[in-house]
C-alpha cells in the first residue's frame, strides 16, 4: 500500500519546483505557470488528506474544488494583466516591470 507520506513528499517537491519558477524565472507567464504548480501541490495534499484521514467527509474534495475556482480566476486575471502590461511596455519580463519603486 502507498503511505500518505509518499503523496506529501511528491506534493512538497512539486510545490518547491513551482516556487522556484515563481522566484527565478524572468518571464511573467512562467511565474503564472509556477503558481499553477504550487496550487496543484496544495490540491494533492488536500485530496490525500481526505482519502487517508477522513474519507467519510467530503470537505477535502470541496476544498480542492474551491482551489480550482480560485486558480481559474487567478489565471484569467493574471493573463489579462500580463497582456495589458505587454501592450503598454512591450515586455513581459518581471524584472523590467519595476515602476513601483523608490
Amino acid at each position: 500500500m502507498i503511505p500518505l507520506s509518499n503523496y506529501l513528499i511528491v506534493a512538497a517537491g512539486l510545490f518547491s519546483i513551482g516556487l522556484y519558477a515563481v522566484l527565478a524565472r524572468k518571464n511573467a507567464i512562467m511565474i503564472l505557470m509556477g503558481i499553477e504548480l504550487m496550487l496543484n501541490a496544495v490540491n494533492i495534499n488536500l485530496v490525500a488528506f481526505w482519502r487517508y484521514l477522513t474519507p467519510e467527509n467530503v470537505s477535502g474534495q470541496v476544498f480542492a474544488a474551491m482551489v480550482f475556482v480560485v486558480a481559474a480566476a487567478e489565471v484569467a486575471v493574471g493573463i489579462a494583466l500580463i497582456m495589458t502590461v505587454y501592450r503598454r511596455r512591450d515586455t513581459v519580463s518581471a524584472d523590467e516591470i519595476n515602476l513601483m519603486k523608490w
Binding site: 500500500m1 502507498i2 503511505p3 500518505l4 507520506s5 506529501l8 513528499i9 512538497a12 482519502r51 487517508y52 484521514l53 474519507p55
Partner: peptide
C-alpha cells in the same frame, strides 16, 4: 515539519 507528524505514514483506510 511533516515527518514529525504522527499521521505522516498513515495507510488509507
Amino acid at each position: 515539519a511533516l515527518s514529525v507528524w504522527p499521521e505522516f505514514s498513515a495507510v488509507a483506510p
